[in-house]
Amino acid sequence: MRLKFIEEKIAKGFMIIASLAVFAFVVNIIYTIFRRGIPALNWAMISQIPAGGYYNGGGGGILNAIVGSLYIVLCSTILGLLISIPVVFYLNVYLKKDSRLAYIARLAFDVLFGIPSIVYGAFAFTIMIYLGMHTSLGGGILVITLLIIPIFIRSMDEVAQQLPKDLLDSTYALGATKLETIKVVLRQIAPGIATATLLSVGRAIGDAAGVMFTAGFTDSIPTSLNQPAATLPLSVFFQLSSPNADVQDRAYSAALILIFIVLVISILGRLITNYFSKHKI
């Protein structure tokens, strides 16, 4: 009789330790990056592009990578939304619940969701060679868009599947066509869209393997879609591969900047999500 209570205590202890471990990892990662990243951090890093010999310890900063990453994230998020919202809408409003196409499509998006970004990158690069394209901002945007569409669709679809049937029925009862219910549906799943965007942006800005072959790397800020573009994760990676200790320190600062951007985006995203939830029934 006593045994089960002892077992309960022990089990609970382990669970608490496990949950604390999650915390510990977060704290440790952030602390490690901060401790090593702060010393080399300065204004020049985020306001200048790399000067000559930057990767051997020369002056300058990583503005090229920050801007490149933001370009890619912004464009692919917009493109991703434009493609995935219609798909989610189609799956949930136009198609019936037991539709075969919906089942296959959801499975396909699950598979796409799982495909590693390096495979996307390799695939896109092959196509780019085939089309005679060079590594470029456009290529990077393309790959990241491919990468985040399944994220968008999966997380929006999860919310859209909870769409109350009454809500659609009420809208149809007013004489709405399926297309016209989109205004209602969008408002209802707005928090879901915000969450999905948050997830996608986080994934898009942090992805290195996908843009490696497709966006290339450059020291200048791209002015057109045909020019190669630097990205923050790759910038961290390349600086870290340098044998020069000063440059390695800068890699830590760049990682810090990357974390900072991700955290800011996620906090902003949360605020926006709350705002969008106000009409939800």
């Binding site: 990892f25 977060v26 490690t32 990056i33 990676f237 830590y252 974390i259 991700v262 996620s266």
Partner: peptide, 25 residues
């Protein structure tokens, strides 16, 4: 709420940062 926040942060950290953490720690 706290643990989920920690998980969100963990999920949001870019993989290159994990790499940096790996090499540093």
């Amino acid at each position: 709420k706290w643990v989920f926040t920690a998980l969100d942060i963990l999920a949001g950290i870019p993989s290159v940062v994990y790499g940096v953490w790996g090499t540093l720690f």
